[in-house]
């Protein structure tokens, strides 16, 4: 449903995307995972016909985004990284306006607006100006606006960044629901957990390059195995590292701040027992010890040698403000 072949895009010296490939089957959720500045929004903008790639092709439902942008626009719904709704208009007016711009007759636009308000739990706030909405409500309204055209392909750029955990769970449920009805979703995120939870297939990008692609399980299996995680008193850290050096089948990761050692294992149960034995013999009692499946954080660390937070401090975006090029006052 979405096909991206060899897409590159530079902004002056910044290579925002380098030879990116991606293919999203119909009715699935594609996760596009990467830290801030990885190029996620750039790819989203190319797919949404807002930006022309320097090289490569992008197609939605077989239609080239450059050759026939208008048809592509009629197939997609876009909810950008920052809620693109009119502050002065009410929620309902915003949705009706977008419906009208999708060429819906006025009564139909109103019905669709009503539907979207109901689905997103905005009925009570529907007739209030958007400037009185909370960040989460704006996001929901923005998502609603992308739905009034009943798009086949929904493009969501960091739909839950800056949302509180509960609203995030609601958003996830909502997205799953849409896909169950046949919509194809491309979802960008900085949250490994989000991609893990939602996406059928994940593409990891870093500095404009695809560094991994596959299902969540495939990516996890790149680490080969489960992990033993041991947390000890700080004073015991070095000794623990030493005694555990023969356990498992890979290089241990040591988090000195939290005094935590993570060891990849091949035979989970025997390895865990071995770990227990050597710790007991050395007289070390861990604060915490367990076996866990690798998280996508581990994957990212393994792929890039950095954690996702390394790039920058990644301040949560202030609502309604777009960082690209401009930092103007919201209307």
């Amino acid at each position: 449903m979405i096909e991206v072949e060899g897409v590159s895009k530079s902004f002056g010296p910044t290579k925002a995307l380098v030879d990116v490939d991606m293919s999203v089957p119909i009715g699935t959720i594609q996760g596009l995972l990467g830290p801030n500045g990885a190029g996620k929004t750039t790819l989203v903008r190319i797919l949404a016909t807002l930006l022309a790639p320097d090289a490569g092709r992008a197609r939605i439902a077989g239609i080239d985004v450059r050759q026939d942008p208008n048809t592509v626009r009629s197939l997609i719904g876009l909810a950008g990284q920052y809620a693109a709704v009119d502050e002065t208009l009410t929620g309902r007016e915003n949705l009706v306006m977008v419906g009208r711009l999708y060429r819906l007759a006025s009564p139909l636009a109103k019905t669709r607006a009503e539907e979207a308000l109901e689905r997103l739990g905005l009925v009570e706030a529907a007739d209030r100006p958007v400037k009185t909405y909370s960040g989460g409500m704006r996001r929901r309204l923005d998502l609603g606006a992308s739905l009034v055209g009943r798009p086949r392909v929904l493009i969501l750029d960091e739909p839950t960044t800056g949302l509180d955990p509960r609203t995030r769970l609601d958003m996830w449920a909502f997205i799953r629901d849409l896909v169950a009805q046949g919509t194809t979703v491309l979802l960008t995120t900085q949250y490994l957990e989000e991609a893990d939870q939602l996406a059928d297939h994940i593409v990891v990008i870093d500095r404009g390059k695809v560094i991994a692609a596959g299902t969540s399980d495939e990516l996890k299996s790149r680490l080969g195995s489960d992990l033993i995680e041991v947390e000890v008193a700080e004073s015991d850290l070095d000794r623990t590292t030493a005694v555990l050096s023969d356990v498992g089948c890979g290089k241990a990761t040591i988090d000195e701040v939290r005094a935590r050692i993570t060891i990849p294992v091949c035979d989970p149960v025997p390895d865990l027992m071995a770990a227990l034995r050597v710790l007991d013999k050395a007289g070390i009692t861990p604060k915490d010890l367990g076996l866990r499946r690798p998280s996508l954080d581990d994957v990212f660390l393994a792929l890039t040698g950095r954690t996702t937070g390394d790039e920058d401090s990644d301040a949560p975006p202030t609502t309604g403000r777009r960082s690209r090029q401009r930092a103007g006052t919201p209307a």
């Binding site: 016909t49 920052y82 693109a84 709704v85 006052t329 919201p330 209307a331």
Partner: peptide, 20 residues
Amino acid sequence: VGLSQDMSNGIIDRFRSLPM
């Protein structure tokens, strides 16, 4: 001023992504 505000708060991007 009005158009520039629309650009800043992203609503122009929404319009540009619509089949209008």
